[in-house]
């Protein structure tokens, strides 16, 4: 017992991060929300589109559009662009309440959305109970959601908790491209959540199918399965990205 106390007081100490009062500690090479410089992209080549492993870049009339809902944040488009028009910034506020909020276009000025749904704030503003369902996730999204439980992030401070039973949950947090083999279990779990209930798509796979989109064994993320209230793209989303999005969903920021 004495050694446990000594360890707690003198060696391990208090280690919960300062986020959200201070910006999170992100790795120097962190790839956050990209910006596409207006005017730099000539629109005359297809290099970024050809390079993108996830087909996340679409040619539109007014230039390219990078869909973060498909993006793996691998940075290959930025690397390959001869005009250096794409740059991945360290903007970690990536989560969006709407699918369109994940579209990046040249010259966009990005302002993260604010929760305006009073009903959601009334039900979940101070307490958000989450039932996580993995439906083909590679375990990275699951692990980095789990990390929010650890004392480094301690999401319990904000009233966020993962619960075992869907009966106790306000929302589902779903990872993976939604395998055909998990579809029924996912639907049953969703049906077991008391209404009103909400859905979070965590990770690029859950948003759009990601790298697995188009495979007959998977559905392309939640797009045609459940209405999603929060999209958090990433492969996997950094814990700071996910926690920031959850807090914004709750109207805490």
């Amino acid at each position: 017992m004495l050694s446990i106390l000594k360890s707690r007081c003198f060696r391990q100490g208090f280690r919960t991060g300062k986020f959200p009062d201070a910006p999170p500690n992100l790795p120097e090479r962190f790839q956050g929300r990209p910006v596409i410089a207006a005017g730099k992209c000539t629109g005359n080549c297809t290099i970024c589109r050809d390079t993108c492993p996830a087909d996340a870049i679409i040619q539109e009339e007014k230039g390219i559009m990078l869909d973060l809902g498909k993006c793996l944040f691998c940075g290959k488009c930025a690397e390959s662009c001869p005009e250096k028009a794409i740059e991945f910034t360290n903007e970690y506020r990536i989560g969006s309440f709407k699918r369109e909020g994940l579209y990046c276009r040249p010259g966009d000025t990005y302002v993260p959305e604010v929760q305006t749904d009073e009903k959601f704030k009334r039900f979940c503003g101070d307490s958000l109970k989450i039932r996580q369902v993995s439906a083909g996730g590679c375990a990275a999204c699951e692990l980095d959601f789990n990390v929010l439980h650890t004392l480094a992030w301690d999401m319990g401070r904000f009233g966020i908790k993962a619960v075992a039973s869907p009966r106790h949950a306000d929302c589902l947090l779903i990872t993976g491209p939604i395998t055909e083999n998990m579809l029924l279990a996912l639907k049953k779990t969703y049906a077991a959540v008391p209404r009103p209930s909400w859905v979070i798509a965590c990770g690029t796979c859950a948003v759009s199918g990601g790298i697995y989109a188009g495979n007959p064994e998977v559905h392309n993320g939640l797009e045609e399965i459940l209405k999603v209230d929060l999209y958090v793209p990433g492969c996997p989303p950094h814990p700071a990205v996910l926690l920031e999005a959850l807090l914004r969903l709750m109207g805490k920021k």
Binding site: G136, P177, M182, A185, E217, V218
Partner: peptide
């Protein structure tokens, strides 16, 4: 098992 089957080898 099998719930996570994504069809990796076929891809």
């Amino acid at each position: 098992l099998g719930y996570q089957h994504r069809g990796v080898e076929k891809m």
